[in-house]
């Protein structure tokens, strides 16, 4: 569990369009890494390349090396399906399966791996994942009701439970709070703090305070203009980025002096 990610000269394309150029970075385990930057600079694109979700889009591909504890995720013969089973993802909009109950949602990923688990084991796993996502107390009496009946914040925590039920090495989150109210946002931020004890966490956020609150390391992406590829400008400890960044563009962005 909790592995280290290393990207080496990653270029990411949508067909002919190069969306992200030459990103090299290290994401440390048992820590929260935040990606910030203006919209369109390729934060989501880069995040989705980390679990090979990027190539789901027709024509999209990645060039470069991406190591998970030294193993190249884009190496020959690597099955993207297995990569995604090890690297969980939480999306911008909560997306529990509407046709499944709360419990079925939590166990959805596990069912893919291991169709033979006993009911007792499954119940135990579901409870553990829901507790891990700070949702157990709220849903323990309605595990068999549809997940779509929950509030937005609860649905997002359900999606986190669904991801951590797989016991992934890494948890990727793409603006997980942007569709949520402030109270639900705080609940998720608290949860992220707890989860980092066990997982490598990468979170994209457009909210600078959020990056400052939850992350240990911050990466700032930027884009020279529309049609240009996004680039990693600076990556450092969150404290450093938000107090004395070494690049002018980073400072402009975090102080709000940015277009």
């Amino acid at each position: 569990m909790s592995k280290r990610i290393e990207a080496k000269n990653l270029d990411i394309y949508y067909g002919k369009f190069k969306a992200v150029e030459d990103v090299s970075m290290v994401v440390e385990p048992r820590a929260v890494t935040a990606f910030i930057g203006p919209s369109g600079c390729g934060k989501s694109t880069f995040l989705r390349s980390l679990n090979r979700m990027h190539e789901v889009i027709p024509g999209a591909y990645v060039d470069g090396e991406l190591l998970l504890d030294g193993e190249d995720l884009y190496g020959p013969g690597v099955d993207p399906v297995n990569v995604r089973r090890q690297i969980g993802m939480v999306f911008q909009r909560p997306n529990p399966f509407p046709t499944m109950s709360i419990k079925e949602n939590v166990l959805a990923g596990l069912k893919l791996n291991n169709k033979r688990a006993s009911k007792g084991e499954l119940d135990e796993t579901a409870e553990k994942a829901l507790r891990g996502a700070n949702l157990w107390e709220e849903v323990k009496n309605r595990l068999d009701l549809p997940g779509s009946g929950l509030s937005g914040g609860q649905q997002q925590r359900l999606c986190i439970a669904r991801a951590i039920a797989m016991q992934p090495d890494v948890l990727l989150m793409d603006e997980p709070c942007s569709a949520l109210d402030p109270i639900s946002t705080l609940a998720i931020e608290d949860l992220i703090q707890e989860l980092k004890a066990n997982y490598t966490i990468v979170i994209v956020t457009h909210n600078m305070q959020q990056a400052a609150r939850v992350s240990d390391t911050t990466a700032f992406f930027n884009i020279a203009g529309t049609g240009q590829p996004g680039k990693l400008i600076e990556m450092d400890s969150t404290e450093k980025i938000f107090s004395t960044p070494s690049v002018k563009a980073t400072e402009d962005y975090i102080t709000g002096r940015f277009g």
């Binding site: 679990n51 979700m53 789901v56 399906v81 297995n82 990569v83 995604r84 089973r85 969980g88 993802m89 999306f91 909009r93 997306n95 529990p96 399966f97 509407p98 959805a108 990923g109 893919l112 791996n113 999606c159 669904r162 991801a163 797989m166």
Partner: peptide, 14 residues
Amino acid sequence: PKLHEEAALALGAT
């Protein structure tokens, strides 16, 4: 919805 297809794929569904 793309949202649900991606949810499944991100869980490691074929």
